[in-house]
Each structure stands twice: as structure tokens, then as C-alpha cells.
Amino acid sequence: MSELLKITNAHYSSLIDGNPSEPESLEREFVLEHHQSSFGDVPEHRRRIVAILCQHYQRLHRRTSRNGIGAFARALTFEHFALLGLHPHLWSLSRGLGRRLDEYQSVTSMNDPMKTDGLEGAQKIIGRKQLAFIDLMLDVCHEEVDYMTAALNRRRLRESVTRAYKTNSRLKDSGIRPETMPALLALLIQGALPRSEFVTFTGLPPEAASDQLSKLIRIGVVVSPPSNLHGLEIGLPVWFAEEIFPGVQ
């Protein structure tokens, strides 16, 4: 899921910034040093979150070229969130902002140049806009976390997998039998299973179960890692992820 979201982040970054974007890859040592130097003296997590978003906003408004700064600022904010234990690699800030692009452009003054009368007026406008930016970013984060929390609910996963088995043409054309659904659902929920347990979950005779497993591996829904020949992991090709997590793209 994390790798898939990196791809969607690049797509939505292109939408937000108006130019093609590659996924930002930041050196962990740089992030750790930046986090400690910028937020090490802030004791409370909620204050750190606000400080991180303030810095994001300020980075966008430095008198430097905007090319690529938005994607960099979002990637850095994500890494700072990760250091606070917020696990942002299971949800996409860029996707949420892409869906609320007009609001994002408005609070970051990307649509219109800032017009003020004197320094005092400028500071007041910056203050209001910065608060509006923080409100929007927190709201978007909540929306994205709520989406993934609902999508990863076991009942919702069961409904999604059931629907996929009934309607997805790739599963049907590959000859995947409905009996494999409990095994695939168990693998999706747990992330990994021994081959023997997967076969047992299907309820099929060993030969038929092995044939079905080979077909699932062939279409990428199940992965057999070279490091563990007796184990299986879930695969999330884009077409399957879109079935299980509608709206993830």
C-alpha cells in the first residue's frame, strides 16, 4: 500500500503543482537532523504538528523558485509526521489536497498575488492565511485517515473482496474460483500466511488449491517471496487495489 501511494502522490503532486512530479525521496539522516533542529524544543505532539504545518506554509512562501518546492514541502511534512508516529505512509496528503485543490491554492495564495498596504497589513493577512492553511491541512489529514480506517475495516474488506470476485473481469478471465475468496481475504487481513494455511482456507483438494494459488500468483494478487518459499504475502497490483480501495487513485 505504501508503494502504491507513492505513485499516487506523484500523480496528485502533478495536479497540485501543475507540472510533472517524481516521488520525493528524502535522506533519513537529513529528516532526523531537520526535525531535531526545528522541533526538538517543542514538547507536545500537537504543538509539533502545528509547527510542522507552519513551516510547510512558510516554505511555500520563501522568495525562491516555486518549481518543485510544493512536492518537497509535502514530502518533508510527511516524514516529520512519521517521526511523530502518525504513520502517514498509509494515507496520502497529496491525494486529499488534490481533491480540494481550489481551497489549497486559495490558502497558499497560489491563485492571486498577495496585495497589502504596508508591513502591518501584510503580517495580518499572512497570519489569517496561515491559520486557514493549518485548518485545511488538518482537515485533509483527518479525511484521509478516516478513509483508510474505513477501507481497512474487516467488514469493509470482506465486502470489497466479495464484490471483486463477483464483478472483476480479470479474476474471472484468469479462472479464479470463488472458493479461494476466504483464503485471499485471510491473507489480505494478515498480510502473510504459510502456504499450507492458505491451501486449507480454500477448502479445495490439494491439487486444485495449488492450481488456484498459481493463478493468483500469476496475476500478482498473491506474492511468493524468494526469501520464504513456504510463505505467501498479499500483492496489490493497481487494478486490484482499485477494487479493494475504491478512490485510492
Rank of each mutant, 00 (worst) to 15 (best):
residue 79 E to R: 14
residue 156 R to A: 14
residue 178 P to L: 07
residue 33 E to R: 15
residue 57 Y to K: 08
residue 65 S to C: 09
residue 204 L to E: 08
residue 246 P to V: 00
residue 41 D to I: 11
residue 222 V to P: 10
residue 15 L to F: 10
residue 76 L to Q: 14
residue 78 F to W: 00
residue 86 L to V: 00
residue 207 E to D: 07
residue 34 H to I: 00
residue 28 R to D: 09
residue 64 T to C: 03
residue 185 L to C: 05
residue 230 H to D: 15
residue 175 G to W: 08
residue 79 E to L: 06
residue 141 C to P: 00
residue 243 E to V: 00
residue 249 Q to C: 11
residue 91 W to Q: 02
residue 119 L to M: 15
residue 138 L to H: 05
residue 84 L to W: 08
residue 48 R to Y: 11
residue 147 Y to K: 03
residue 106 S to L: 09
residue 100 R to E: 13
residue 135 D to H: 10
residue 40 G to F: 07
residue 164 A to Y: 08
residue 160 S to H: 11
residue 211 D to Y: 07
residue 47 R to T: 11
residue 222 V to F: 04
residue 89 H to C: 01
residue 61 H to P: 03
residue 230 H to Y: 11
residue 160 S to T: 10
residue 111 N to Y: 08
residue 229 L to S: 13
residue 141 C to A: 12
residue 80 H to G: 01
residue 111 N to I: 02
residue 130 Q to N: 11
residue 222 V to R: 03
residue 196 S to W: 05
residue 228 N to F: 07
residue 77 T to P: 01
residue 131 L to M: 08
residue 149 T to Q: 13
residue 149 T to K: 12
residue 57 Y to G: 05
residue 198 F to P: 06
residue 12 Y to R: 02
residue 239 W to R: 09
residue 221 V to W: 02
residue 170 R to M: 06
residue 112 D to R: 12
residue 185 L to R: 12
residue 158 R to Q: 15
residue 97 L to S: 02
residue 160 S to M: 13
residue 241 A to K: 09
residue 78 F to D: 13
residue 160 S to A: 15
residue 156 R to M: 09
residue 178 P to H: 06
residue 38 S to F: 05
residue 174 S to T: 04
residue 182 P to Y: 11
residue 4 L to R: 11
residue 224 S to F: 00
residue 8 T to V: 14
residue 119 L to C: 12
residue 119 L to S: 14
residue 200 T to Y: 09
residue 117 D to F: 14
residue 204 L to D: 05
residue 186 A to R: 12
residue 69 I to L: 11
residue 52 I to S: 13
residue 219 I to R: 01
residue 161 V to N: 01
residue 95 R to A: 00
residue 48 R to K: 15
residue 53 L to R: 07
residue 66 R to N: 03
residue 46 R to E: 14
residue 45 H to P: 02
residue 204 L to W: 05
residue 24 E to M: 14
residue 26 L to G: 03
residue 227 S to C: 02
residue 111 N to L: 12
residue 137 M to Y: 13
residue 81 F to R: 05
residue 214 S to V: 01
residue 247 G to H: 08
residue 102 D to M: 04
residue 25 S to E: 14
residue 98 G to H: 05
residue 234 I to P: 04
residue 240 F to K: 12
residue 160 S to D: 09
residue 55 Q to H: 10
residue 48 R to A: 03
residue 192 A to C: 07
residue 63 R to G: 07
residue 244 I to A: 01
residue 55 Q to L: 06
residue 78 F to N: 12
residue 226 P to R: 08
residue 27 E to K: 11
residue 229 L to R: 13
residue 219 I to M: 03
residue 196 S to R: 15
residue 30 F to S: 01
residue 108 T to D: 01
